[in-house]
Structures are given as C-alpha cells and as structure tokens.
Amino acid sequence: MLATLPFLGYIVEGLMVTVGATLVGFAGALLIGATLSTLIVGSNTLPRYVASGYVTVFRALPELLFVFIVYYGLDIAMRALAARIGIAPLEISPFAAVTIALAMQFAAYCAEIFRDARTAIPGGLIEAGEAIGLSGTKVRTRIVLPLMFINATPALGNIFLVILKVSALASVIGLEEVTRRAKVVAGTTKEPFGAFAVAGICFLIVTALATALQHYIERRTTFGRSVA
C-alpha cells in the first residue's frame, strides 16, 4: 500500500475523467432517450418502428462491443469518408468514443423508462389541465414532463450508477479514467491491491454522492406522500 500512496493524486485525477464521461454520457442518454420515447408513443408509423428497432438493437449489444465499434469502426469509416471527399479526417478521441457509445446505448434504457413514466401518469391529470384551457405545450411542460421526471427519477438514478461503472470499459481504449490509471499504477508499483482499492474507494464515494443526490431529489418530490 505504501508504494501506491504517492500515486493517489494520479488515480483520483482519473476520477474527473470518469465522472465527466459519465455525466456527458448520461446527459446524452437522457436526451436521445426522451426523443426516442416520444417517437415510440407517437402516431407516425415509420419513426415509431425505427425507434423501437433502436431500442431492441441497443439493449442487445454488449457495451464493450459497441465501445469498440465507435472507437475503431467509426474512425475507419470517417477516414474512408474523408479520403473520398478530400478533407482531413476528424479523429475520435477515447473520451468522445466512450461518451457517444454510452449515450447511444443507454438511451435505449432511458427511452423505456421515460415511456413507462409517461404511461404511469393518470389521464385525468392531463384532462384536468385541458379542461381549464391550458395549451398543449403548457400541458406538456407543466403537467406531463414534471410528473414523468418524478416517476422516472428512481430508475434514472440506477441508470446513472450503471453508466458510472460501465464507463470503466473506456479503459480498454485508453481513456485515462480511474480503472485505467489504477491498472497503470498497479503495473508500476507491483501493488495491484493498493491501486485497485483506491479505485474502488473512488467509485464508492461517487456512488454515495449520487445516491444522496437521488434521495434528496426523491424527498423533494414526494409532495406529501408518505415515504417508507
């Protein structure tokens, strides 16, 4: 453990990358997921099928595989495209690759969560809004979205924690997040337990903070319901 201590800062710095990738990936997943869920419950047939297909495919794909597809596959595709139209190719950084992969993959789960959260809203609450003369937009922003968010919070909290942990997959493509740095330090110090323990504690701390935040949000949104 002693040899690991000087590397503490180096490993913890990786936590910034882990949290950054998780937050960006999570935000992307929420955005794409919300869009998908509106398409799935929408009345247009083609977008509905496309969105349902998306959810099916991405729930089936292993996360690691998709990280590889984005990082290597997209890069090769961009290179080919750039060569054809004669511009310098954009390079996909490991950070971009992993956030794109996480966002796209977990959007599938978020879409399901949002759809369930939307279905759980009693129709009467929406009718009550319509009956006093609220516009369609106001009904959405004042009634549907807040209730949907409240219903979805517990499940979204879980998704956040899963993304946090799955972001460790980014270490295989060289993103210098906590697990990758712990592995490098383990190799350097020959004290794998020390390095991995530090990484584990990092994840514990972030998870504890995220859980506390989730409970705070849930408490703020009980609105008088008794909480067990």
Binding site: G124, L125, A128
Partner: peptide
C-alpha cells in the same frame, strides 16, 4: 367552461 371530475384530478406535484 369549468369542469370538476369524479376523481378530483388534482396535480399531485
């Protein structure tokens, strides 16, 4: 036209 519903339909939030 105001309306009152059987199940109240107050917004819980």
């Amino acid at each position: 036209m105001g309306m009152v519903f059987q199940s109240f339909n107050l917004w819980p939030h």
